[in-house]
Design a protein around this nucleic acid. Structure first.
Lengths: 196, 196
DNA sequence: CGGATCGTTGATCAACTTCAACGGTCGTGG
DNA sequence: CCACGACCGTTGAAGTTGATCAACGATCCG
């Protein structure tokens, strides 16, 4: 099965597409290969594309005032990634998006996506569903961050995303969970000097 | 201008609607009045509606294991609210949604919304845009929470949402920003014992 | 008037960061 | 092919941010 066929199959999980719609949708995506440490979005530049990961792992992050980095999004196979604030509004990005491994992506441009959505109600629905699911996922993440300690968030992450947990470097997971890599190391090794 | 006209005008900021589409859209919404402290979503029950605030203020929150409450969403005039994880997937809610003031809302049911989106490409587009904007806003909130201190988040909130800041009780703002009301009080009154 | 409700203040405490030092591993160029 | 950095993770000590606890004051409303 080709990369484009995978995407069509993925889209059909959410919305029924005619052969023609599926063909038009996938034709708008271009396969790109990126090397580990290669950037596809950088602050100050508009994110002109969104990407769907076929193979590999990609990370979106921002840099704080003191130079610390914070992972905002992670994507492995069958996940989407971009700087959505930049992509949706076509404004300069605040994020970096970089490959954590040599990766293969399917890339669609803002303009192409816009045309596709206008041309097909079903494709419009597909992107609406993606956006809704993304909203729901972000809401869950906000709740998790507000209501749980660093240690709880890590254990939840392990359970929910075991594939990422075993594959991604620790500093990426730590910064995704909103803690330092030192602290995550202590959690993992039970080196917490607890009163209890 | 009626409440339903306001909604039509709001929708037309994002997408062009024919007279018929606008009429169908607004007809699906029912005006509801709720009293301060009245709940419209409760954990365990499916959120069957989403609401658009015409007048008043509404708060969505979750309760942590130790009974602390965390504000997940706030809505005043022209904002949307629901428990989106519940509404989108039609699964039991984890949030409470409650009126902070006597409020007037426009309410649409999941089923009605579904029909409308299926019947009109433009309405589908409207909801897609809402979802995308919501995703982008949540991403900004995640970044803000990760990258800034409690004090910085408060000052940013003041600047960005002055209308809410002057109108909502302090404990609501504090829990929205992920801090205790005591701490927010100290920030506001500069009672922080700082080394600097 | 009297009880909720909301905000304030200070003392103490816990969660997590920062800083500094070090050890292992991986990959790349000489 | 091996040596030398980068990169990644670990550990401990000290420091900070913000939470918790407890008490109290003001205001609002029925």
């Amino acid at each position: 099965m080709t990369a484009h066929d995978s995407l069509a199959a993925y889209a059909r999980k959410f919305v029924p597409l005619s052969e023609e719609e599926a063909a038009d949708l996938t034709a708008a995506f271009k396969e790109v290969k990126i090397k580990k440490r290669q950037f596809i979005v950088q602050p100050g530049f508009v994110a002109k594309h969104r990407w769907w990961v076929i193979k590999g792992a990609v990370r979106g992050y921002v840099i704080g005032d003191a130079g610390e980095d914070y992972t905002v999004q992670l994507a492995i196979e069958e996940w989407w990634i971009s700087d959505y604030n930049s992509y949706i509004f076509q404004q300069p990005a605040s994020m970096f998006v970089v490959a954590l491994e040599d990766s293969v992506l399917l890339q669609i441009s803002y303009e192409e996506e816009k045309k596709l959505k206008a041309a097909s109600h079903a494709v419009e629905t597909f992107f609406r569903i993606l956006a809704e699911r993304s909203t729901a996922a972000m809401q869950r993440r906000i709740i998790m961050n507000l209501t749980h300690t660093a240690e709880e968030r890590y254990h939840y992450f392990l359970e929910k995303y075991p594939a990422m947990a075993e594959r991604l470097p620790q500093y990426v997971i730590a910064s995704f969970l909103g803690m330092t890599t030192e602290f995550l190391s202590k959690i993992r090794n039970q080196k917490l000097r607890r009163k209890s």
